[in-house]
């Protein structure tokens, strides 16, 4: 497997650490054609801008934040689907930028993406059996062994009546069934690390719960290290013991999910927690502590990116970027905690 035998860059023992992101940034140039440039519309979108964290083996971590804050980009960076503009990502101690050739194939097996939209994730012209066989074929698994692995994977995701499903096409299945297949496909090569990008956002509530349960169960049984991307804190809480809250390309808070839910530290996390509706009508609701919408990612405020919506902002927030501050089990990026 990748990296296990390769020496770590800093020569330290990282066996407990599966992923390490160090100052990772991904910037996109948008509207770079001539007219846009002449009109001053060309701009740099800092989709991810200086993100650092590590994932321990077997950890399940939620990546939470509003639309456009960079969650998907971060997930794609971790899987080496896009290269970082700056910073580095280590997988099993090895810089992913240096992984190539046979190692890259091994990496692609070990690190898998579970897509958001089950209706788009599978080739509509392939039967479920063909879709599941494809990654095995690419990985050079002998034909004779494939069916056994397919059946195992379907069982793992608790797909009902696997024998019958195998010869069906995607359009003959419900969203929930498809999402199980998509998950089975990601798990069939026995990865050690998965990134699930909003895997239930397209599914109905009654079905969603089943998929989330499978995800929790599989993660535990296989000891997977997982990133679960979502804008829904209630879902993240259900599947992740740790949560990283992002805002406009940056991390604002990182720590145990229960602590983030019950006593959010960063003013933005607090707003997120306050805004989540709960299904019981007697719940009293605190007024939302912030105003306005998320600012334009092309033109984020100086200093702390949240400052123009923050009820506690003071002078320093405009001039200085908050550094990570340790508060018990949590890391918070906010000047309020810098005493």
């Amino acid at each position: 497997m990748v990296g296990v035998t390769a020496p770590a860059i800093d020569g330290q023992d990282h066996r407990d650490e599966v992923v390490r992101a160090e100052g990772v940034a991904k910037h996109y140039q948008v509207g770079s054609n001539l007219i846009a440039t002449l009109r001053g519309r060309s701009a740099l979108v800092k989709a991810v801008d200086g993100v650092s964290f590590t994932l321990k083996r077997g950890e399940s971590v939620g990546l939470l934040g509003e639309s456009g804050c960079g969650k998907t980009t971060m997930g794609r960076l971790l899987l080496k689907l896009v290269p970082p503009t700056s910073g580095s990502i280590l997988f099993e101690g090895r810089d992913t930028a240096t992984i190539d050739g046979a190692d890259l194939r091994a990496f692609r097996r070990s690190a898998q993406l579970i897509f958001q939209n089950p209706f788009e994730a599978l080739n509509p012209r392939l039967t479920i059996r063909q879709s599941l066989a494809e990654p095995l074929e690419n990985a050079g698994v002998p034909r004779a062994e494939r069916l056994g692995l397919i059946e195992e994977a379907l069982e793992l995701v608790r797909s009902p009546s696997p024998a019958e499903i195998l010869e069906r096409y995607p359009h003959q299945m419900s969203g929930g069934q498809l999402q199980r297949i998509v998950m089975a496909r990601a798990l069939i090569l026995q990865p050690t690390f998965v990134v699930a990008d909003e895997p239930v956002s397209m599914l109905d509530v009654s079905v969603r719960a089943g998929i989330l349960n499978v995800f929790r169960d599989v993660r535990e049984r296989l000891g997977l290290t997982a990133i679960y991307i979502s804008h829904d804190l209630a879902l993240v809480r259900y599947v992740c013991e740790r949560t990283i809250v992002m805002y406009l390309g940056r991390v604002v808070e990182d720590g145990p999910t229960e602590e983030v839910v019950h006593e959010p530290l960063h003013p933005y996390s607090k707003a997120l927690v306050t805004a989540v509706p709960v299904p019981h009508p007697d719940q009293s609701h605190e007024a939302l502590p912030i105003h306005g919408g998320a600012p334009d990612a092309r033109n984020p405020p100086s200093g702390c990116r949240f400052r123009d919506r923050c009820p506690h902002a003071f002078e320093r927030c405009a001039v200085e970027e908050p550094k990570p501050i340790q508060q018990g089990n949590r890391t918070v990026y906010c000047h309020l905690f810098d005493s």
């Binding site: 009654s206 079905v207 969603r208 719960a209 989330l212 349960n213 839910v261 719940q283």
Partner: peptide
């Protein structure tokens, strides 16, 4: 439907799907 909903305020252990479609 109520059982299948995640609830941020409760310490609910498990979400219950409704089998079938």
């Amino acid at each position: 439907l109520y059982n299948a909903f995640p609830d941020l305020q409760s310490s609910q252990g498990i979400l219950t799907p409704i089998e079938g479609s």
